[in-house]
Amino acid sequence: MTAVLELQGLTRSYGSLTAVDHVDLVVREGERHALIGPNGAGKSTLFATVAGTLRATSGRVLLNGRDVTALPESARARRGLLRTYQHSSLFLGCTVLDNVALAAQRVQRVAHRFDRPARRFRRTQARALEHLESVGLAGRAHDLVSALSHGERRQLEVAMVLAAEPTLVMFDEPTAGMSAAETERFVTLLEGLPRTLTVVIVEHDLDVVFRLADRVTVLHLGSVLASGPPEAIRADEAVQAAYLGAARTEDLFTGGAR
């Protein structure tokens, strides 16, 4: 299998603070790759740098073997590299349907058409509704996003990013703020996604991590501490040793969550 995403010495600094420090990482096609690490490890910064929201201080980002480090965020998105945000980033003044349709209509190349009303673009509407259905929000399609609960917004975020038809999607703590039932729905949805889609996920809930992931990377102080199959990470002494004071790795990850 080929590498969908490859990071080579990726570094991102905020002034004197190096939030992401020479990260090398390979994510293969179809992989479910979990990225874990304590608060402030640099996970969100890594996502933002890979997505192109933040410029890399040094290093390279390769997408399907092509160097995209110089490309702006929108160009990377058009190449199929999408992400969700740790703190919901939605279109609050628009309807729930509009939010998802914005993603769908861009992929279908009708985002700049104004020859007929949006509801007459049946393919876009159908695709958007389909994705809303998959996260259980179809009944709220015509409500304003500002009327949604926190958990529902998290679900909407998932529907929106999937409607953009990514080849690689990075979820930043998608289940934070979801109820247990919503989390379950999300995990089931992710398990059902086709393997043509590659997933990188930052997640504090280790149950979710070990259910989904077939590879886990541990980030600590901006650097990769360990990377490998879940069982190996669970047993890894370096991972445990990095967090002196806690009896079990789990406690550290979940205990420090948000």
Binding site: E73, S74, F91, C94, R106, H112, R116
Partner: peptide, 27 residues
């Protein structure tokens, strides 16, 4: 018509959250 079209939706998206539009692949 423009306001109700997909283009109008794009414009409202820009109004509400331009950064998110870029992240969705818009220019």
């Amino acid at each position: 018509l423009v306001a109700r079209s997909p283009y109008g939706r794009t414009l409202r998206g820009i109004r509400d959250n331009e950064a998110r539009m870029r992240a969705l692949g818009y220019r």
